[in-house]
Design a protein around this nucleic acid. Structure first.
Length: 847
RNA sequence: GGGCGCUUAGCUCAGCGGUAAGAGCGCUGCCCUUACAAGGCAGAGGACCGGGGUUCGAAUCCCUGAGCGCCCACCA
């Protein structure tokens, strides 16, 4: 027994953090079979920028589960990854080093930034993708170190020997292997098709990365004359600049107003193209005039119409987001008045769509086709989540992974997952039900995992996209911009009859969707993988259910025909006191380090632990102060329980046995709560018991424990105190790992975090039948204190006579605690009267 | 437009069919009591969002309305 005189929280984080590391407390024992393992698919945080309280909360939630499961006796596989693959890192590296990635350059092994010739400082230096990746890796190392420090400080019980980054070699290999296997099975394919395109980032994006934003727009009512000169129809559009791309008008087949128009033709204003008037269910009679123009391509609906109605394409918006030059003479490009059409197009060509919109409105007004004044409106437009300009639909050649045909199976996978909280499953289902196309996984960016394919070039140097050259899996990872396909030499690159590497990289989620496989050593560590996969738990935020969670389910379904994990625990956001989501861009973040310093890591964890899964939590330093008080209380109460001089002995006193009976109930409840992934409830139960234990039990038995009634009764108290303490420390250990470890170290060997989670049965030999003894005594004690508080006297003031009115059974229970109660309450004489309910009269000694 | 969640004391939240509605914080008062003054003890404070219904009994179940938040949806 080694109890300090003045226990303190100071320095506990460093002391135990180092000890856990040195002794390998959280090291994964890979000799354990799957059924004895609890595996966690830790979210790899984005490694650019810094961690904030939201991370601290959600990662603590995961750690609570990890610690609970470890104490339950399972071997916890708790790796950590860093997500450094993707656009955020790319942009940071460009600015930081003043470079620009040119994927056409070969890797330069002797590349050295410090000796680089830089004639113009303002001009970014082009570097190969391989060199660019090295720079990215260099920069992210620092972020990752800072993140690790923060996570260690908050006490995550991660096994730090199991780490990965999403751009490291293993991740690249896993991503490419996964892709190649999908390709060989026909589940990945490359096709030229209209896709959502960000005109600033110059890349295709997937449905999952698109968000709606409400922006200002303008409705223009435009007249289209019928081709046979028999009249006209009007349409309403917010994008008149797409009139040159109009290939048809569409009405709802059931719309009586326009039934006579179907099958006839109209002429586009200004451009004089003759376009059919067609019918389609998606045309909404309620919107606009009930007649819509179909353009190639204004939005996804246009794509649907174009595809289903087999319309020709006349694309006018270029990849840079401006009106492209006309292509007169090509199929689809004709006009009744060719000169007028040319003049109109010349007015618009080269203009960004927004300016082209204004210009064409003027032209339409001039030609008399614009009806009435344009009406300003607020409407919803699709944006790339990181983008600043609306997405355009452009036709380009992209890689896709088949998704739609698995919709039903993926919905079924969603039903197999145990969601915490349960209703989060609805978000997954609604996303899967709303999918409108396969997963576009190619990006026209640089920092990411390249597609491990090359294309043969024919005698004219034109690539054969339909028959890609692929490497054997043993060669992975490859970089097709510097590596050469089998059977070719480097000098064949780009030559007619030679080869060209695929220039694109994969969507960052194509890698992140493999985190269980990457962390688990899929195809790399055949001993480890079956011990951890499929995993037990995926913890994450709800905003990325449609990306990270969905894609991970998809990949596991396609590759392993299984779920990637059984449970999904969804944490909420952290809101600032004004109920706004805390985020860096809002400038309302508090750094975690500040909080650790002000309140201690245990205190911060207490706040995090009291927030339930799936519920947005309010950032509340007050709550951290409460956590700190709890931690200090644990130190002091433990000191009291452990420094009694009396010997331990049999637990015989009714009050002691009753208290332990109550503790047994708390153990049952806390355990049930943790089994249900309700950590907040488990904390509440343990904490409730602990405070009552301190306020009432400690006070009731204090004098007896000091020996006021002899060694045997003291022994019963001391044993009970220590028994209860040992159980309660373990109940609280997941939440307050530092302070509980500190106290554990005073009188036990080994780490509390490897000790067994308390079982109700542990307490059975010491538990009496009547838990009411403790409860009634505590209630009477409170009543006596109240009388003293009301009389504004010290609690030490003796109570000459206390009369307790209560039921027979409760009075009998009370009699068992009489001696302790009199001692704790300073009661000289205790009398009892039978009554319906509890009432206590207290006569205090006159001063 | 569809879906999900939330609405309980000044604040943050439990409770989700059964004794007079709970906790913590904050507030007020008292107390240096030998585990703890970075403390302890006690007190005040509530039409359980509104309206219907089911029930012996509803904050809790059903219907309906309102507000807030989030997710999804084809930019006419």
């Amino acid at each position: 027994m080694n109890v300090p005189d003045k226990p303190s929280l100071d320095g506990l984080e460093a002391k135990w953090g180092e000890w856990w590391e040195a002794t390998g407390t959280y090291r994964f024992d890979r000799s354990k079979p799957r059924q004895e393992v609890y595996a966690i698919d830790t979210p790899p945080p984005t490694a650019s920028g810094s961690l904030h309280v939201g991370h601290v909360m959600s990662y603590t939630h995961t750690d609570l589960v990890a610690r609970y499961q470890r104490m339950r006796g399972l071997e916890v596989f708790y790796p950590m990854g860093w997500d450094d693959n993707g656009l955020p890192t790319e942009r940071r590296v460009q600015n930081y080093f003043g470079v620009r990635c040119d994927p056409s350059l070969p890797y330069d092994p002797s590349f050295d930034l410090t000796t680089l010739e830089r004639p113009d400082e303002a001009e970014p230096v082009p570097v190969s993708r391989g060199n660019f990746i090295e720079l990215c890796e260099r920069l992210t190392v620092e972020d990752e170190k800072a993140f690790e420090d923060c996570f260690r400080q908050v006490g995550l019980s991660v096994d730090w020997t199991h780490t990965y980054t999403t751009i490291d070699e293993r991740s690249r290999r896993a991503s490419q292997r996964s892709f190649l296997r999908l390709l060989l099975r026909g589940l990945a394919y490359k096709v030229e098709a209209p896709t959502m395109w960000d005109v600033d980032f110059q890349t295709a994006v997937a449905q999952a990365e698109i968000e709606d934003r409400e922006v200002a727009g303008t409705y223009h009512r435009v007249r289209f004359d019928l081709a046979d000169g028999s009249g006209s129809v009007e349409i309403e559009t917010s994008r008149p600049e797409l009139i040159p791309a109009c290939v048809a008008l569409v009405v709802n087949p059931g719309d009586e107003r326009f039934r006579g128009l179907i099958g006839r033709s109209a002429v586009t204003p200004l451009f004089g193209a003759e376009v059919p008037i067609v019918a389609h269910e998606l045309a909404d009679p309620e919107k606009g005039t009930g007649v819509a123009m179909i353009c190639t391509f204004g939005d996804i609906t246009d794509v649907t119409w174009w595809r289903e109605l087999r319309l020709p394409a006349r694309v006018v918006v270029g990849r840079d987001g401006s009106i492209a030059p006309a292509r007169w003479g090509e199929p689809g490009w004709d006009a009744r008045d060719a000169d007028a059409a040319r003049r109109a197009h010349d007015e618009l060509a080269g203009l960004p769509t927004k300016r082209a919109r204004k210009r064409i409105a003027e032209l339409l007004a001039g030609s008399g086709h614009l009806r009435g004044e344009p009406q300003p409106v607020r409407h919803v437009v699709k944006f790339y989540e990181r983008g600043e300009r609306p997405l355009e639909v452009v036709s380009s050649r992209q890689w896709f992974v088949k998704t739609i045909e698995f919709r039903e199976q993926l919905l079924e996978r969603g039903r197999q997952i145990r969601w915490h909280p349960e209703h989060m499953g609805a978000r997954y289902a609604s996303w899967v039900e709303g999918l409108n196309g396969d997963w576009c996984i190619s990006r026209q960016r640089f920092f990411g995992v390249p597609f491990p394919v090359w294309y043969r070039l024919d005698e004219h140097g034109v690539p054969d996209h339909d028959h890609p050259l692929v490497p054997n899996e043993e060669r992975l990872p490859v970089d097709p911009s510097s590596d050469v396909p089998d059977g070719y030499a480097p000098e064949h690159r780009g030559q007619p009859g030679g080869f060209a590497g695929d220039p694109d990289i994969m969507d960052t989620w194509a890698t992140s969707s493999l985190t269980p496989q990457i962390a688990g050593g899929w195809e790399e560590d055949p001993d480890l993988f079956p011990r951890v996969f499929p995993m037990d738990l995926r913890p994450q935020a709800h905003e990325i259910i449609r990306t990270w969670l969905f894609y991970t389910v998809l990949k596991a379904h396609l590759e392993h025909d299984s779920l990637p994990w059984m449970n999904a625990a969804i944490s909420g956001f952290v809101m600032d006191p004004e109920r706004k989501k805390m985020s860096k861009s809002k400038g309302n973040v508090v750094t975690p380090v500040e909080m650790f310093e002000r309140h201690s890591a245990d205190a911060v964890r207490y706040w995090a632990g009291s927030a339930r899964l799936g519920v947005d939590a309010t950032f509340d330093e007050q709550q951290m102060k409460v956590g700190r008080r709890l931690a200090i209380k644990i130190l002091n109460a433990s000191r009291f329980a452990l420094t009694m001089e009396a010997q331990e002995g049999p637990v015989a006193e009714p009050v002691d046995r009753a208290m332990l009976a109550g503790l047994r109930t708390s153990v049952e409840q806390a355990t049930a709560a943790f089994e249900d992934y309700d950590h907040a409830r488990a904390l509440e139960v343990a904490e409730r018991f602990f405070w009552d234990f301190c306020d009432d039990y400690l006070e009731l038995v204090k004098q007896r424990a000091y020996g006021a009634h002899g060694p045997e009764k003291a022994a019963s108290a001391v044993s009970s105190l220590r028994l209860a303490l040992g159980v309660q420390l373990r109940l609280l250990a997941p939440f307050l790992p530092f302070v509980t470890e500190e106290v554990w170290s005073w009188w036990r060997s080994g780490s509390i975090h490897r000790a067994a989670w308390p079982k109700p049965d542990e307490l059975n030999p010491h538990v009496a039948g009547d838990a009411a003894v403790y409860r009634v005594a505590a209630e009477v004690l409170t009543a006596v204190r109240k009388a003293k508080a009301m009389a504004k006297v010290s609690l030490r003031t003796p109570a000459e006579l206390v009369t307790v009115h209560d039921s027979v059974e409760r009075l009998r229970a009370l009699s068992e605690a009489e001696a302790d109660l009199k001692e704790a309450g300073g009661i000289v004489k205790l009398e009892t009267v039978e009554a319906e309910a509890l009432a206590v009269e207290t006569i205090l000694a006159t001063p």
